[in-house]
């Protein structure tokens, strides 16, 4: 039977939704236990939130002064120390999980699986390769399975559980060679791109940073998150943490609206799991129309304001 350790992602205040989706992947293994490890400076809200996730057996609260803004070099030895009691160690395939988990796997001397999309057996998984243009099925060798989970492929679990929270202190060699300095964020108060139901995205077709206000206006009308193609980020229209695609964020909203995005394969890799894709582009041959459920060939500078006007005004 499988015993799964899920590494929680949090910012000290809020448990990231990616943790819940990783628990969902853990449950797909049909495990006898799913423990969630919360690494923190002290007892915190994220540990309580993790305890409410359905299917969680225990929350292990690992307290250490170095776990305030922890870096991978500090977390990895803790993860590998805990891992020895488990058959599987899972973390979300976010920048957090991608940074920490390979380091922990190397300390354990095992391979790591990146971006699990589907669980086909206790050590058989499906994952995307070549920017999502192919899916590979792989079988991990005997030993602890260490893997990151493509969160867009799993639905968050309900929050009606009540697992016990156990405090743990680990004996590990805490390195001092890496210092966290600061984070500069840029969400602007809008929903998080990776958990939003609706995402409005703009590309090179917006032509300027100022014009992106049209995207923000529509997004606010829909209560949506804002995304962007690499071209829009490179042109300086928006900050890079809004980039959707192979090298940016992989998202799976119910509705994805793409304006002025041609649909390069690297971008499509980030939206393949979206429920409904709407594309507005003046080029009828843009590749985005090959994947769009609803396409409108037209000038986005006319469509964007007209669409905002046509929507119910009571949405915030």
């Amino acid at each position: 039977m499988s015993k799964v350790l899920v590494i929680a992602e949090h910012d000290g205040e809020t448990l990231n939704l990616s943790t819940s989706r990783t628990v969902a992947c853990a449950l797909a293994l049909g495990p006898e236990a799913v423990d969630v490890a919360v690494f923190a400076e002290a007892e915190n809200k994220p540990a309580e939130a993790a305890a409410r996730l359905n299917g969680v057996t225990r929350v292990l609260l690992v307290e250490h002064a170095a776990n305030r803004n922890p870096v991978a070099a500090v977390l990895a030895p803790q993860v590998s120390a805990l891992a020895k009691d488990y058959t599987h160690v899972l973390a979300p395939a976010t920048t957090f999980g991608k940074d920490v988990l390979p380091r922990a796997a190397a300390l354990l001397g095992v391979p790591q699986v990146s971006d699990i999309m589907r669980v086909l057996g206790r050590n058989v998984f499906e994952r995307p390769i070549y920017a999502g243009n192919a899916l590979e099925t792989i079988e991990t060798p005997p030993g602890i399975v260490v893997a990151t989970v493509r969160t867009a492929s799993f639905k968050a679990v309900a929050e009606t559980g009540s697992a016990p929270v156990e405090k743990i202190s680990l004996d590990f060699d805490c390195p001092t060679h890496t210092r966290f300095l600061r984070v500069e964020g840029s969400s602007g108060g809008r929903p998080d791109l990776q958990s939003a139901r609706v995402v409005v995205s703009g590309g090179r077709g917006l032509a300027s940073k100022e014009n992106f206000d049209l995207i923000y206006a529509l997004a606010d009308r829909l209560g949506a998150a804002v995304g962007a193609s690499r071209a829009a980020v490179d042109a300086g229209f928006v900050p890079n943490d809004l980039q959707v695609g192979q090298t940016g964020k992989i998202i799976a909203p119910e509705l994805y609206l793409a304006f002025g995005i041609s649909g390069a394969i690297q971008h499509l890799a980030g939206i393949k799991d979206a429920g409904t894709i709407v594309a507005v582009n003046k080029d009828p041959d843009a590749p985005i129309f090959e994947v769009a459920d609803i396409g409108l060939v037209g000038d986005l500078f006319e469509v964007l304001p007209a669409l905002a006007d046509a929507l119910p005004k009571d949405k915030s």
């Binding site: 910012d11 870096v71 976010t94 920048t95 957090f96 060679h177 890496t178 210092r179 966290f180 300095l181 600061r182 984070v183 500069e184 964020g185 840029s186 969400s187 990776q194 900050p239 890079n240 943490d241 964020k249």
Partner: peptide
């Protein structure tokens, strides 16, 4: 000193 592209924005680390 390295600026890292993380989901929340840019994270700055100082590494030896």
């Amino acid at each position: 000193t390295v600026a890292r592209e993380v989901d929340a924005g840019l994270e700055f680390l100082l590494v030896d």
